[in-house]
């Protein structure tokens, strides 16, 4: 589908297919059109072009239009949008026909709020309000649930716990769900699939380990995880990098971008190893060490456990222990993209 506001293109070349029961994260920087895409799916916004199917119902496009209230698509809003004039029970019951209201207690039990049924929304904590919003969206058993930045209103300490809970609840309910986020950790940790989005386009869809481990473009690689990027040159089946020559079978000659993840490297004390330590950040379970290569490139290395031997200024050698990714420098995808695993 496509959608513009005036001369600003919000969504274009947006093409996505979701299987039943999958929890998909729509990941992208703020302003990339992901919330607009979600609102088009919910029927709160009309797309300029394109088609939308839910199951075998043609919900929108080429003259078809089903109003939001008839779509059977649930939505959890960024600010949760709990009705402030209704208590928890009536919030959850809002989307249910009168004769199905027994389901309210069932859903409230599922989100562990059965004891708060008579509370007003403002009397609840942020995490509880979040669960009410989820229960309200789940109650009418929609075919798809959309969640718009559902965790951004929670403080950092609560966020990790709540998102694991929500993912668990959605899986237990067997829900098909899309949630929008700009937090890559959030997307990678709880989603079954991640759709990476930038400038209104979907760049790649795949399982979390795929988009991290096999990014299709340099843009995706740059958006997910941290990495060392170098300019490289393919020359007869090898790429010349600051870390030395790396085999690149099948790649045509020409300039490429080279990505090495910090955890794919190792540092060893070595006088005259071609590098020395210039910076270190210690996180407890691991640490990030920055080395300056003699030819002038800096490179980040993630190391497990304490390494008291690597104080500032220590002479080291940088060793490659994990995969190296190649991307054609002009941003085009395949066949020049490659992967080398030592």
């Amino acid at each position: 589908m496509t959608k513009s506001f005036g001369s600003t293109v919000a969504v274009e070349e947006f093409d996505l297919e979701l299987r039943d029961g999958v929890l998909l994260a729509l990941l992208g920087p703020s302003g990339c059109g992901k919330t607009t895409a979600l609102r088009i799916m919910a029927g709160l916004e009309r797309a300029d072009g394109g088609d939308l199917w839910v199951g075998n119902r043609h919900v929108q496009g080429r003259g078809a239009w089903i109003a939001p209230e008839k779509r059977r698509i649930g939505m959890v809003f960024q600010d949760w949008a709990l009705f402030p004039h209704l208590d928890v029970w009536h919030n959850v019951a809002f989307g249910l026909p009168r004769n199905e209201r027994s389901r309210v207690n069932e859903v409230l039990t599922m989100v562990r709020l059965e004891r708060h049924a008579e509370h007003m929304p403002h009397e609840l904590s942020g995490g509880q309000q979040q669960r009410v919003a989820l229960a309200r969206a789940l109650a009418p058993s929609p075919q798809v649930i959309l969640l718009d930045e559902p965790f951004s209103n929670l403080d950092a300490t609560l966020r990790a716990k709540v998102r694991a809970e929500v993912a668990e609840l959605l899986r237990r309910a067997g829900a098909t769900a899309i949630f929008v986020t700009h937090d890559q950790e959030e997307a990678l940790s709880i989603a079954d699939e991640v759709a990476v989005m930038a400038d209104g386009r979907i760049l790649q869809v795949g399982a979390p380990h795929e988009v991290y481990g096999a990014p299709r473009t340099r843009e995706v690689a740059g958006m997910i995880g941290s990495g060392n990027f170098f300019a490289g040159q393919v020359d007869g089946g090898r790429v010349l990098t600051p870390l030395g020559a790396v085999p690149s079978p099948g790649l045509a000659d020409g300039p490429v971008d080279v990505l090495v993840r910090p955890e794919s490297l190792q540092l060893r004390r070595s006088a005259g190893g071609g590098a020395h330590v210039v910076h270190a950040e210690f996180y407890g379970h691991d640490q990030l060490v920055r080395a300056l290569l003699t030819e002038g490139t800096t490179i980040d290395v993630r190391l497990l456990g304490p390494r008291p031997d690597l104080s500032l200024g220590t002479q080291v050698r940088v060793e490659l222990t994990g995969p190296v990714h190649f991307f054609r420098a002009d941003g085009a995808v395949s066949p020049l993209c490659g992967l080398h695993v030592p």
Partner: peptide, 23 residues
């Protein structure tokens, strides 16, 4: 008014008129 309240009502199956009356 927070517009997402009315949007929430629509996504929960209320017509515009019902949304006006109930929310």
């Amino acid at each position: 008014l927070d517009p997402s309240l009315e949007e929430a009502a629509r996504s929960l199956g209320r017509t515009p008129w019902q949304t006006f009356r109930e929310v």
